[in-house]
């Protein structure tokens, strides 16, 4: 059940959020109105990123959950038992033994999720906001598409995609250089 969202296409996740947050028919928008909050993400640029984030994260959480579950199950029980004998409370055991032993999984997921955020959120944005309002959700990967295919500025679009690639590569390199040091295999 928990992994079902991962089976949904990004666009489907986007449509789901689009309807939930839609100012006219959306149930979440309705409740917010009842609570006295004026919700209109198609006009308010500050609000527009929110449904995008929700849709993208909802789809990805299940995937992350699976990896963490696998990571948890791969931790041999004697470690936890040894810590219990050493006198650690369950919470302490989690923070000092389980959590560090999950760090390879966590590191892998950080890298993958950042790449996901840069590239695979395209469908979600396309469905929910089309990069608007007023470019508030126009992230680079969407802008590449928008400028290239809609604006027909192919040169600029190609240049932006190179910039995007450089950004992601350098982010990944930074992660491997500085975060991986703290990871225990």
């Amino acid at each position: 059940m928990i992994i079902w969202p991962y089976a949904a296409a990004p666009a489907v996740a986007g449509v789901l959020c689009y309807f939930l947050f839609n100012p006219t028919v959306g149930i979440i928008a309705l409740y917010m109105k009842i609570l006295g909050y004026e919700w209109n993400h198609s006009l308010n640029g500050g609000q527009a990123m929110f449904p995008v984030i929700i849709a993208a994260a909802w789809r990805e959480i299940s995937n992350n959950f699976l990896f963490f579950l696998a990571g948890l199950q791969a931790i041999p029980k004697p470690f936890i038992e040894a810590a219990a004998i050493d006198g650690a409370s369950p919470l302490k055991r989690f923070w000092t033994i389980t959590f560090p032993l999950l760090s390879p999984t966590a590191f892998f997921l950080i890298v993958m999720n950042i790449m996901y955020a840069f590239f695979d959120t395209f469908g979600v944005i396309h469905v929910i906001t089309d990069g608007g309002p007023n470019n508030a959700t126009n992230i680079v990967v969407y802008k590449v598409y928008h400028d290239g295919f809609l604006g027909l500025d192919l040169g600029g679009s190609a240049a932006q995609s190179v910039v995007l690639m450089i950004i992601v590569i350098s982010l990944t390199v930074i992660q491997f250089r500085y975060i991986e040091r703290k990871v225990n295999y």
Binding site: P78, A82, I85, N184
Partner: peptide, 14 residues
């Protein structure tokens, strides 16, 4: 107040 040596030692790898 006991201490145990496990078969595979269970040394915390990190």
């Amino acid at each position: 107040d006991i201490a145990m040596v496990f078969q595979n030692y269970a040394l915390y790898p990190h």
